[in-house]
Design a binder for these strands. Structure first.
Lengths: 149, 149
DNA sequence: ATTTGTGCAAATCGTTTGCATCTGA
DNA sequence: TCAGATGCAAACGATTTGCACAAAT
C-alpha cells in the first residue's frame, strides 16, 4: 500500500477498492455501499470536474441505484472531508473537482468545459492585504477563454 | 458635462439623472421609467455588488414598482451593454458589479460580503497558454477570506 | 442498541419564459 | 405607428429538507 495523501494527488496511480475504502475511513466516513460506489466513480486515478448530475448518471450506468439526494449529500461530505473541492464557475451549477491540490482553471465559455491549470503555471507576484480581521483562505483564479474563430 | 466613459469608472463623481439618461441612450437602450429608476439605484457614483433581489428591494423602498422579471431583464441588458459586470462567487446567486474596470474580489466566506480589489494590487507574473484554438478573455481572481478569530 | 446514512417526494430558491398589454421614439 | 419593453404568473432546474426506513458500529 502507498500513502493515501499522495494517492489523492497523483493522477496516474490506479486506486483499488481497498484504497478507496481506506480513504473513506480515514476521512471518518462510514463505509456504505453508496459511498463506495460513488468513490469508485470519482477516485479512479484521474482528475475530474463533475456535477451531481454527472455522478448520478454515472452511477446509473453502473447499475448502482443511488438517489440524487444521496449523491448531493455524499459530494458535500466528501468536500468537507477534503476529498473533493468545490469550484464555482457558473452560477447555476456546482462543480466538484477531484483534484484537491492548489491549482486553477480554464473555463471555456463557448462549451462550458473546465480544465485544470497547475498552480505553478500561474505566478501571482503580489496580493493585497485582506480586510482587517480576516486572512486569505484560498485564491481562485479562473481563466475564461473563448474560441479565436 | 464630462465624459461618460470616465464617469463610469470614477467612484467619486455624482451622476445626475441626465447623465444616466445619456448612458442608457449611448448604450442603445430606450429610456423607460423602469430603466431610469434602476440606473438611479445602480449608478449613483459609488461601486456596488448587487443581486437582482437587492435591486428589487431598493426599487421597492423608493416606491418604484418594478417587477422582479424586469429587474432581471434590465440587469442583463446593462451587462450586455457593458454597464455592469457579472461575477460568480457563489453558485446560487449572480452578483452584478457596477465597477466594470478590470479588477478582482475579496469574498468573505463568513458573511458573504464582496469587496473590490484593484487589478493593480494583484500582480500576475505569468499565465499558461490557453488550450489551442482559444484565447484568454478575462482573468477572474477571487481571494476567499475568513475571519481570523 | 444507538447512531449514522439513505431514499423519496415535496419544498425551496434564484432565475427564466410565454404571452398579453403598454409605451417610447 | 409599432418594435421594443414590461408585468404577471407559471415554468424551470439545481439543490435542500423532512421524515420513515435501513444499515453500520
Amino acid at each position: 500500500m502507498f500513502d493515501k495523501g499522495l494517492a489523492l494527488n497523483m493522477t496516474y496511480i490506479k486506486l483499488s477498492d481497498d484504497d478507496r475504502a481506506l480513504m473513506l475511513q480515514q476521512a471518518g466516513l462510514r463505509l456504505t455501499r453508496q459511498r463506495q460506489a460513488l468513490a469508485a466513480i470519482l477516485f479512479d486515478g484521474t482528475h475530474k470536474h463533475v456535477t451531481a448530475e454527472h455522478v448520478h448518471a454515472a452511477a446509473r450506468k453502473k447499475r448502482a441505484a443511488i438517489s440524487l439526494a444521496t449523491v448531493y449529500n455524499t459530494l458535500h461530505q466528501f468536500t468537507s472531508a477534503g476529498l473533493l473541492r468545490e469550484i464555482v464557475i457558473d452560477a447555476s451549477r456546482i462543480y466538484f473537482d477531484t483534484n484537491v491540490e492548489s491549482h486553477h482553471h480554464f473555463f471555456d465559455e463557448s462549451n462550458g468545459r473546465l480544465t485544470d491549470v497547475p498552480a505553478s503555471s500561474v505566478a501571482i507576484a503580489s496580493l493585497p492585504k485582506p480586510p482587517s480581521g480576516t486572512k486569505i483562505d484560498r485564491v481562485d483564479v479562473v481563466l475564461r477563454v473563448r474560441g479565436k474563430a
